[in-house]
Write a protein that binds this DNA or RNA. Structure first.
Lengths: 215, 215
DNA sequence: GTCTATATGGGGATAGAC
DNA sequence: GTCTATCCCCATATAGAC
């Protein structure tokens, strides 16, 4: 072993510390959002000093981008592990449930929704965009399949379904239900899934479908 | 008239300028969000200098809170103007449509969703909370009524419906549809309403209702 | 690679003239 | 009440010792 083993050990430790930093970043992102995070916060959370952070990530934007990339990787890995016999609609449900549970356990920043600044930052990262596009295409195919089977409403365009779906992953209703509604995590997930897929409207189609011209 | 008339004229001008400031604030909030707005931005947008802003509003938080209050007042006024014969579900649709159209025309900050900081700030304003509570109670009664009529799903608790409804007013899907989907405003509003009330699931209840245990 | 100490810049808020 | 000029804190990022 010798020198090579030592180097690999060092690399491992380095990687572990990086993971710890990214964990802390994700946790803080979920609580404070991008703008209000300070590098001091992250450093304190990990138990490192600020300059050490900059040895790992060259800027705050880089750090946050990396955390978001890891998040997408988690989602992609989750999709890969789903059993092959699962139908398209169930796949969508399952992924949304996973994302909501990650969020409820304090891990996930509901970030892509936030400021234009953050969106611009992420879309300028090739590595992020690559993963986002891969996931998007995968989900787009699933939606198409689900519509074919009648599991999703055929009259809705794919992008309307997908963007609404993405929005549910960062839906503030989750926070409201936890803070004001006093629901447990399981109940929140269940309700969110129900509303996402079935909507809030009941069986009376007359009134529910009625429109009132605004202005 | 004399002195009194002059004073009233001055007050009117003052009020008009305040409205202009609040308009600009709302516009900027919609674009940049609370954290990224600077008082210089607002001053420039209105064509005033920064210290003059502070003659009208004692702090940035005060300014933004006031803008949000005016927004709620607008919603309350809109609800008052709805024709009495309109059913509960149609009232909900109509208000959501109004909010979305305000947002699409660049006016509305989808704020209450954002950071804990902003939420704390607003909940500490008695005037804001009063209005929010008034609107909330009004909508709660409407939801109860709608469920009774079968226009909304009876198995959903009121707060689940309401928080989901609130979340739709600041749904990032609107931005995505405009930016990537290239839809017109009318189409976006229509799709958003459809998804909100009817969900994305289709008529095949077997698969759509299936669950997959996460983890 | 890790720390203490510091440079730099931006933005909220104000002083003081007019 | 409006402006110009300024204060001052805070947060990103770095210099330099160990």
């Amino acid at each position: 072993m010798g020198v090579l083993g030592k180097l690999r050990f060092k690399d491992q430790a380095f990687k572990l510390r990086e993971d710890a930093i990214l964990d802390a970043t994700a946790r803080l992102l979920a609580v404070k959002g991008f703008d209000l995070i300070t590098m001091d916060d992250v450093a304190d959370e990990v138990g490192l000093s600020k300059p050490s952070l900059y040895k790992h990530f060259k800027s705050k934007e880089d750090l946050v981008t990396e955390a978001m990339i890891r998040l997408l990787d988690g989602a992609l890995a989750y999709m890969d592990e789903l059993p092959g016999e699962l139908g398209p609609s169930a796949r969508l449900r399952s992924l949304l449930e996973w994302v909501l549970r990650v969020r409820l356990s304090g891990g996930l920043p509901f970030l892509p929704s936030t400021s234009p600044h953050v969106r611009a930052m992420l879309t300028h990262s090739l590595r992020y965009v690559t993963r986002a596009l891969k996931l998007h295409r995968m989900l787009d195919a699933i939606v198409t399949d689900a519509k074919k089977r009648g599991e999703l409403r055929r009259e809705l365009p794919n992008d309307v379904i997908l963007y609404s779906y993405y929005a549910r992953t960062c839906d503030p209703a989750v926070e409201y239900l936890r803070i004001y509604g006093k629901y447990g995590d399981d109940a929140i997930v269940e309700q969110m899934l129900a509303v996402c897929f079935a909507g809030i409207a009941g069986a009376a189609p007359g009134e529910a479908g009625a429109r009132f011209p605004s202005r």
